[in-house]
Amino acid sequence: MDLTLRPATVDDAEAMTVMHVQAWRESYGHLLPPEFFAKQEAALPDRIERYRASISAGHPRMLAHDPDGELVGIAASGPGRDEDSPCDLELFMLYTLQRIHGRGVGQALLDALLGDGPAYLWVLDDNPRAQAFYRRNGFVPDGKRQLCDPSWYSLPEHRMVRPGVGL
């Protein structure tokens, strides 16, 4: 797929927020009740401001746009937040719209953010598509598990770690 990757600017915050919630609905609609998504949509103005503040503070997000300029993917990484971080770099999020799954957009975002180096991430237990994608990229579960925040209905998730491609 012909796409454009670029770092997000504060001007992208609204499109990012809308796309992010749409991707959640597509990815997690079978796991979370309609009330969850209604709450997320009601909180869009606050979330847009949080994205603007985060980008302004130097916490970058990478964006993928399709040939028509529509935002179809977002991703972010940074210093690991876990007390027992298995490495320095954490993939915080990677979301693409369902209509472009399998076209290399997620791979392009992952490569742009992580390169071939060591990294880790958290993934929902009931997200086999994402888990398969991460396994193809060298990530394996390390045995660490937790429950999401109650606002996410305490869904179970586990950590996956990649020592580095070819290392």
Rank of each mutant, 00 (worst) to 15 (best):
D2G: 02
L3F: 12
T4G: 08
L5A: 08
L5M: 11
R6M: 09
R6L: 07
R6H: 10
A8G: 14
T9G: 14
T9H: 13
T9M: 03
D11A: 13
D11Y: 10
E14C: 11
E14R: 15
E14W: 09
A15V: 11
A15S: 12
A15L: 08
T17M: 05
V18H: 09
V18N: 04
V18I: 13
H20V: 01
V21A: 03
A23W: 00
Y28I: 00
L31S: 15
P33G: 15
P33V: 12
P34S: 02
F37I: 04
K39V: 06
K39A: 15
K39S: 15
Q40I: 02
Q40W: 08
E41N: 13
A42C: 05
A42L: 11
A43E: 14
P45Q: 06
P45S: 08
P45R: 07
R47T: 13
R47P: 02
R50W: 10
Y51L: 03
Y51E: 04
R52S: 12
I55T: 03
H59F: 10
R61Y: 14
R61N: 11
L63W: 00
L63T: 04
A64Y: 00
D66F: 04
P67T: 05
P67L: 01
G69M: 10
V72L: 08
V72C: 08
V72H: 01
G73F: 01
I74N: 06
I74D: 07
A75G: 15
S77I: 01
P79D: 11
G80I: 01
R81A: 08
D82P: 09
E83T: 14
E83P: 15
P86M: 02
C87F: 06
C87H: 08
D88C: 06
L89P: 00
E90R: 05
F92Q: 11
F92E: 09
M93H: 00
M93Q: 09
L94A: 06
L97D: 02
L97R: 15
Q98H: 12
H101L: 11
H101N: 12
R103K: 15
V105Y: 02
G106P: 05
Q107R: 15
A108R: 12
A108C: 05
L109Q: 14
L109M: 10
L109K: 10
A112L: 00
A112K: 07
L113I: 03
L113C: 03
L113P: 00
G115V: 01
G115P: 09
G117M: 10
P118A: 15
Y120F: 12
Y120E: 00
L121A: 04
L124S: 00
D125P: 05
Q131V: 09
Y134T: 03
Y134R: 03
Y134A: 01
R136G: 10
N137L: 02
N137H: 14
G138P: 06
G138K: 05
G138D: 04
V140M: 13
K144N: 09
K144F: 14
K144G: 02
L147M: 10
C148A: 15
C148Q: 15
L155E: 15
L155P: 13
P156V: 05
P156H: 07
E157I: 04
H158E: 11
M160D: 02
R162C: 15
V165A: 14
V165Y: 04
G166K: 13
G166D: 11
G166H: 14
L167M: 10
